[in-house]
Design a protein around this nucleic acid. Structure first.
Lengths: 335, 335
DNA sequence: GAAATTTCACGAAACGTTACGCGAAGTAAT
DNA sequence: ATTACTTCGCGTAACGTTTCGTGAAATTTC
């Protein structure tokens, strides 16, 4: 019989079953215990509808089975997918996720890290943009797409290879004069390597290329100006465009439509990320797909692995190309 | 001087500052304490870089400042936006969010609820589909889009009004013969009221209408068959379509394109939800927008409000219409 | 100036769990 | 039959907080 009408504790269970506290604990944690005791305890648990208090557990074990995810938002489909996959990978390991959306705000990123450390999460996964981010070493941290100090592992797609792959694809598809459209970033991170990869690919394939990189504060409209400047006699100078993200590709294709330039007939377009409509329907454009599921799984694995093991400073995961209607594949190659 | 090299506790701070444990606690919680003590304690906290252990706090207070969100996934843009907004509303109140993606699996939904209750979260917000969901009364619960028992508040858009609004809009836009395209659901929930609202609106405006409702297991392809059956002499019988979601509208428009039927010239299309590309760019179609931010805020407010206050069983929030390129608004009405 | 009153830091108890040393019961060996 | 050994449940201590009763010091009152 319980004294209070609050939630039952192990003590109540022990009383109900007529056993000691420690015995109840053992039953709950699957430790060896006499069969008759086990049954009595299990019956008492059922009867009282007992549930362990994980905060008491956390206090004892200083382990919380919670990981914080720092990410700008969940509105951008790429971030949404990453969030989803990381959550799945954590759940698979019986971990919980604390979602922290930062809206690209460096201050918010720092605050969340402080908060996460304070809340004694077992680890933090962060896709962050704060160049001066201070990360303590009391909580394991894994960074996505950006290296932060030598002791913090960074997981990313092979952005360089992706850029190169885009250039080679455009070359394969018969392009002679291409352009790379990108929004600039003063931050040094892995996705920035797409540019170098693309240039490398263009040089290797003797592909003539232009770069158009928007500066901080420039609007998408700058692309329209750039493209308009490269139209002569109603014809675009370029026969291929590599857009740094599928989002940029989407915006650029709106501009091209306005300028009456046909995709893929007049110009072929390749994006980056592998965004799908509604998360599972069509691709926005032909694109370099990031292995989001692999990235998520790798983040979680590295984060939770035995932390005596050496953690690699940078892990690049292979990207792949996917036809999405904005390139001129011959029918048999559209996989 | 700290004995261990582990994280410092209040005891360490008390020792360092030369005060009692309770005094440190008071300083941390902003309770009145002598000025000289406060300063000594604060200095000690800084020196040791002390951070409170929220699990010990949670154990004492049986309050965790954590809310669990049950939602199918974060890939669907509507769910993604809801997740994002709920997270923001929680953060505003210094609450943390535990994201639980259920993938529409009734079993997973139930498991997460058990887990959430076990983890002693302060509340649960759930967008669920399990008709037999068992929700205990030890943890406050707010349901989105579906009524679950009388003691559980339900927050939803005014789906009925939305359906009606769609019918009226189509009538205003000059439609005479319209159709409602929907994926069926055996579950009784608020979004299902879109149909009744639409029918109501059609009757009120003397609008002839057809219903095409896919059954569980039917593929989207059924819509193609339906639409094809209603084409005579290359012309669609309908001049307006109301699709139950923007996603369906998107799929239907692909079919219409295939069937060489022009939107909005041959047929006007209205969707539901207010999905935007990349979370902030264009709308997919003309649509009835759900007030996601208001829904999120209301969920959090109702969930966390003083639970002695009576909680309303159902709160419907107003929807709005937005032009999205798939209807024939006259220029001055495109707001 | 002594007694009554207020102030406020002190420190122990409690929250619900896990870990560990102890001792009682049962088994095996001589 | 007695001793030695094993087994296993018992119950206490500890995790890091918050709360609250206690008593010493400071202040006020007559």
């Amino acid at each position: 019989m319980r004294k209070k009408n609050s939630t039952p504790t192990m003590k109540d269970v022990a009383l109900e079953a007529g056993v000691a506290l420690g015995t109840v604990s053992k039953v709950i944690n699957g430790l060896p215990v006499g069969e008759s005791y086990r049954i009595r305890v299990e019956e008492a648990i059922d009867k009282l509808n007992y549930q362990v208090n994980s905060y008491a557990q956390g206090l004892k074990a200083s382990k919380t089975y919670t990981v914080a995810l720092l990410i700008p938002n969940t509105l951008n489909p790429f971030f949404a997918k990453l969030t989803y996959q990381i959550n799945l990978s954590l759940i698979k390991r019986k971990y919980r996720m604390m979602l922290c959306t930062t809206d690209f705000d460096p201050g918010a990123e720092q605050e969340y890290i402080m908060m996460a450390q304070q809340n004694k999460v077992d680890g933090i996964i962060g896709l962050t943009y704060n160049p001066d981010l201070q990360v303590g070493d009391n909580v394991p941290f894994v960074s996505i797409d950006r290296s932060i100090g030598s002791h913090i592992p960074c997981i990313a797609s092979d952005h360089f290879a992706g850029g190169q792959m885009a250039a080679e694809k455009l070359a394969d598809l018969g392009c002679k004069n291409v352009a790379f459209l990108r929004i600039g970033s003063s931050l040094s991170n892995e996705p920035n390597k797409r540019k170098a990869g693309f240039e490398n690919g263009c040089l290797a394939r003797n592909l003539q290329y232009h770069l158009k990189i928007l500066q901080d504060g420039d609007s998408i409209h700058e692309f329209e100006i750039f493209l308009t400047e490269h139209i002569h006699d109603g014809k675009l100078d370029f026969d291929g465009l590599f857009c740094v993200t599928d989002y940029i590709a989407y915006e650029v294709m709106k501009i091209l439509k306005k300028l009456n330039i046909k995709v893929p007939d007049d110009v072929q377009v390749i994006g980056f990320d592998g965004i799908q409509m509604f998360g599972h329907s069509d691709y926005i454009c032909s694109t370099i797909i990031q292995p989001v599921q692999d990235i998520a799984e790798m983040c979680v694995r590295i984060l939770l692995q035995d932390n005596t093991a050496a953690k690699p400073p940078l892990i690049c995961l292979p990207v792949s190309y996917k036809y999405g209607g904005t390139t001129k594949e011959s029918a048999e190659r559209q996989d």
